[in-house]
Design a protein around this nucleic acid. Sequence first.
DNA 1: TTGAAAGCGCTAACAC
DNA 2: GTGTTAGCGCTTTCAA
Lengths: 337, 337
Amino acid sequence: MVGIDDVAAAAGVSTATVSRALRGLPRVSPATRSKILATANELGYVPSSAASRLASGKTRTVGVLAPYVDRWFFGKAIAGVDHELHGRGYNLSLFNLGGRSAPRERLFSRAMVHKQIDALLLLCMYLHPEEIEDLHAIDMPLVVVGGPVEGIATVGIDDYRAAKTITEHLIHLGHRHIALLHGSDDLELNFSVPKIRVEGFHDAVHEAGLELGPDAVFFGNFTVASGVEAMRRFMALPEPRPTAMVCASDEMALGVLFEARRQGLRVPEDFSVVGIDGHEIGASAGLTTVWQDPTAQARRGTRMLLAELAGEAGAVHSEMAEQRLIVRETTAAPPAF
Amino acid sequence: MVGIDDVAAAAGVSTATVSRALRGLPRVSPATRSKILATANELGYVPSSAASRLASGKTRTVGVLAPYVDRWFFGKAIAGVDHELHGRGYNLSLFNLGGRSAPRERLFSRAMVHKQIDALLLLCMYLHPEEIEDLHAIDMPLVVVGGPVEGIATVGIDDYRAAKTITEHLIHLGHRHIALLHGSDDLELNFSVPKIRVEGFHDAVHEAGLELGPDAVFFGNFTVASGVEAMRRFMALPEPRPTAMVCASDEMALGVLFEARRQGLRVPEDFSVVGIDGHEIGASAGLTTVWQDPTAQARRGTRMLLAELAGEAGAVHSEMAEQRLIVRETTAAPPAF
DNA sequence: TTGAAAGCGCTAACAC
DNA sequence: GTGTTAGCGCTTTCAA
């Protein structure tokens, strides 16, 4: 295995010079630099990351903690992180918490995360109070993407406004009796996001002077299947039923849409459905939604982390992400309107 | 920062003994071991991975190369790798190739992959001939999940049989004029998978003594949107049109399904659609498909890698994964039947 | 069963 | 602009 001193010897310089030259540091003459580059290339030299980590104390790796990797928001976000990292020579170390909060270890203080990464990007998830404590204790740049965590810099949309916007869209269309399908609190995927979205929904309804029957609230777990399930329960309701449903995610909305049509409801003529997210499949299915871009959010968060690592103190800070109402084909005025 | 010799000093033993004790190696008396464990814990000792990597030459990290991370198959697979890795103390280093083949560097020989990982898991993707060469050159356990790569151990379904099975299902229902939507070859996502699936389709059609008009073949890029697009082109065909369509992925099939219904076709009464994959959204939409489990495939591949690293020579080998026809609600006999 | 000591292959002062 | 040198914090012979 060719090491740095092989290169040094071959180029007739010292290892220190090789190190500087290869890392693009100043204080190397152009001539020596190009010579070193050439011989390094010729010898097929690849620096040992282990050695440079040990010597420099930097890992050039950022950790990504996610509750799921095979769900829309998280997949999109991870793609964004990766995009920013690679190309700048940083590595991405992925830690999947597996969603369920109970059996997971206290990762933040464990060897896995600790000492293996220079910075940490957390994807929106439920956190135990003691985990949040651990989080505050780790001494490295840290940002969360997707939802607010107490006292930690966050990049994400305004969930309250998203829910309110989409609900108001329905109200403007003339709906007076609107159902809600939200992510259950006891499901550990999220934390405050579901709750905040529910508040936006409630406020929109109340500000319009409408009432919300307790039979109009359904629970799901953000999956399509849970949307289907919720719609089955909805159809079991005695008439007159709500004429529209607000879903806390596009995936659930899709399930609702499928099941509604399966049961013979015409959407949007008989029944309107909306989601939140901007899922591609929702787009193709014609789902009205509030769009957001998890990839862009993750890229923003990653760039903050990198800037902080580059010495730019205060680079990491909370920032609101873009969102947009997209009206498509699953919303219309209610039937009797 | 507490290091190994702090622990050694506190426990009254040598660093060598601490090292052995903490890694569970033999030749440490139970008494010393438990004492060391206790003091290490007490001191909050966390070994420096950089140092142990350098000293041992092992990174305890496996690399995952994927063309996309935000697509169904890949997200599921990455989740599977993660599941096997963490808990055994291994890390997962993710490399996203970004799908497009042209502008990507020759990663395999680059510093990123090289010397940073102990083993490599490749997710089904298109590879340039020279990349395959690089692959053969790297000296570490290697497995690909999702599709055959020349001369490399692979875990995945029999794509030929999947396509043939799903096509025969349609033929048995009475369809005589079947369209195909397959992943384009010039789209760099895949490599042989699209082609193999096409062959299975063709063979099923020909063995049934049916013909395949050239107007019956559509191209997509595995996305839902491309399914929608293909269906628009299909509807522009003069009648009589094919009575069913085989799609090379569930996502495309979903797009086809949405657009078919949008255009007023009744599915399955007027038109049948099938996919391949077992996507959850397809399940909720009632899509007939050939199911596969990317997570299980990735777990299998990861376990092989780990076994090989544990010294079990020959642990890495090609293996066929499970698949199953799932008939749901998008297939029926053709209209005039 | 345990300890001493020599690296692993770089980086970072500091001197020249 | 370049070289010398002392670590970085472990693992791993080899002795004891």
